[in-house]
């Protein structure tokens, strides 16, 4: 099945070079200036310089909000409008006419959420919001169970085949198992009350929790380092851009 060769759709994608070039230079210049403005954050609250960062940020926030709106409208509402007019298709097993009801119910719900602050409508808006929340919660529960809890547990307790041959793998699997269990135990909330002074745990329980914390902190450290590396990669791209612009 070929990707639809719609008549002329997207055919004028080829950029016109002359105008494009001007635009490219302007884009590069504007991004250059804005990048420097953001980098002025490093200098902190020096007079004037502190303003640059915040101006850039507020430009960014306004623009991001606008883009989010535009893309939501163009990328979602328009396609949906398009889609419900197509009588041959339907979102659910109920047929196309149901689509229209669903769409306009959703519009109504959106409007009601907008009116959430109106106190006299609270009984209605809260109910609408409750629908959003519980559907989200249901998706989250199903996702958390089937996507994270069960597969991860399953994988944690399934040891690699041919363990006898590979002692290293066995050891690693055991360490992972012990790590997961002790770290999970670490989060335990309820403790025994041991008198007026406070709560306590048995030595064993405390030991487990310390062992668990070793794994947790190790994981956090590694993730921190990875995050650092990601931001470094992005920084290198920005600096590369600054230099390229400086050259050109």
């Amino acid at each position: 099945m070929p990707l639809a060769r719609c008549a002329g759709a997207g055919a004028k994608q080829i950029s016109s070079d002359a105008a494009g070039m001007m635009a490219e230079h302007t884009i590069a210049l504007v991004s250059f200036i804005l990048t420097l403005m953001v980098f002025s954050y490093v200098l902190g609250d020096l007079p004037l310089i502190g303003v640059l960062y915040r101006v850039a940020v507020y430009i960014f926030v306004g623009m991001a909000a606008a883009f989010t709106l535009v893309v939501s409208y163009e990328g979602l509402i328009l396609p949906y409008l398009q889609d419900i007019q197509n009588t041959e298709t339907s979102w659910t097993a109920l047929g196309n006419s149901a689509d229209i009801y669903i769409f306009f119910t959703a519009l109504l719900f959106g409007l009601l959420l907008l009116l959430k602050p109106v106190r006299s409508l609270a009984w209605l808006t809260n109910s609408v919001y409750a629908v959003v929340i519980v559907v989200g919660a249901a998706v989250a529960v199903v996702g958390a169970l089937s996507g994270t809890l069960f597969p991860l547990l399953h994988h944690t307790v399934s040891i690699p085949a041919n363990l006898v041959a590979d002692f290293g793998a066995l050891l690693d699997a055991l360490i992972i198992f012990v790590g997961v269990m002790t770290a999970l135990f670490y989060f335990h909330y309820q403790v025994r009350a041991t008198g007026a002074a406070g709560g306590g745990q048995s030595r064993l329980a405390r030991g487990f929790r310390h062992a668990g914390k070793v794994f947790i902190v190790t994981a956090l450290g590694a993730i921190y380092a990875s995050t650092l590396l990601t931001s470094l990669t992005i920084l290198s791209e920005r600096i590369s851009f600054l230099f390229q612009f400086g050259v050109a």
Binding site: L3, A9, G10, Q13, V71, S72, G75, P79, V139, G143
Partner: peptide, 22 residues
């Protein structure tokens, strides 16, 4: 040049994070 809807397609965006993926 690649032509939209001939050589590739960009589909509408999926809102709501995991809900959209669902």
């Amino acid at each position: 040049e690649l032509v939209h809807l001939r050589d590739y397609a960009i589909l509408r965006y999926l809102p709501g994070g995991s809900l959209g993926l669902r």
